[in-house]
Design a protein around this nucleic acid. Structure first.
Length: 160
DNA sequence: GCCAACGTTGGC
DNA sequence: GCCAACGTTGGC
């Protein structure tokens, strides 16, 4: 059976790594995720070519700023082995790595941010995990119908 | 296994 | 800067 392409939302603080940084780099590995639920999504569910909504948090206004895609499936997060890294984890080992990254490739930057307040007002986006109260996960699933609606609103043609 | 204390996220 | 909502840690 043909595998269903899935869609995701990745949060990043633009001060640490923005959509402009991703555009400049072309692709990056999504390191530093230290939440098991988010880790599990990256390890088990994110597949090559999956669509990504790029979200800026902790900024004014927060919102969706671009589109990306998964360009490599889960592998051990190098930062967990680096003693100098903020993300170093002494309980992790090369033989039994605890944390996982995927590679993320730039696809498009939106002309305008789809801000969180705008997203909240959009009745078509009911049920989007991002809009749930208290939702802090930095890696979240997005339904195909929400993905299509958001890309349409943003005026982005699907680039895969 | 419970739960209080503490730390983090992230909108406002 | 505030604080709600979690997640984690560690004593018991």
């Amino acid at each position: 059976m043909e595998k269903q392409r899935r869609y995701w939302l990745l949060k990043s603080e633009p001060e640490s790594y923005s959509i402009d940084d991703l555009q400049r780099d072309g692709s990056t590995y999504w390191d530093g995720v230290r939440n098991y639920q988010a880790r599990n999504f990256m390890r088990d569910d994110m597949k090559l070519g999956d669509g990504i909504l790029y979200y800026h948090s902790n900024t004014k206004p927060p919102g969706i700023v671009g589109i990306a895609r998964v360009s490599r499936e889960g592998y051990p997060d190098p930062s967990q082995f680096d003693e100098k890294s903020h993300y170093f984890d002494s309980k992790s080992s090369e033989e039994n790595p605890r944390w996982i990254v995927v590679d993320v490739e730039f696809v498009a930057k939106l002309d305008e941010t789809l801000s969180l307040p705008e997203l909240k007002k959009d009745s078509s986006l009911e049920g989007l995990p991002l809009l749930r109260k208290g939702q802090r996960l930095s890696v979240q699933p997005v339904d195909a119908k929400h993905w299509r609606h958001i890309l349409k609103r943003a005026g982005v043609k699907e680039a895969t």
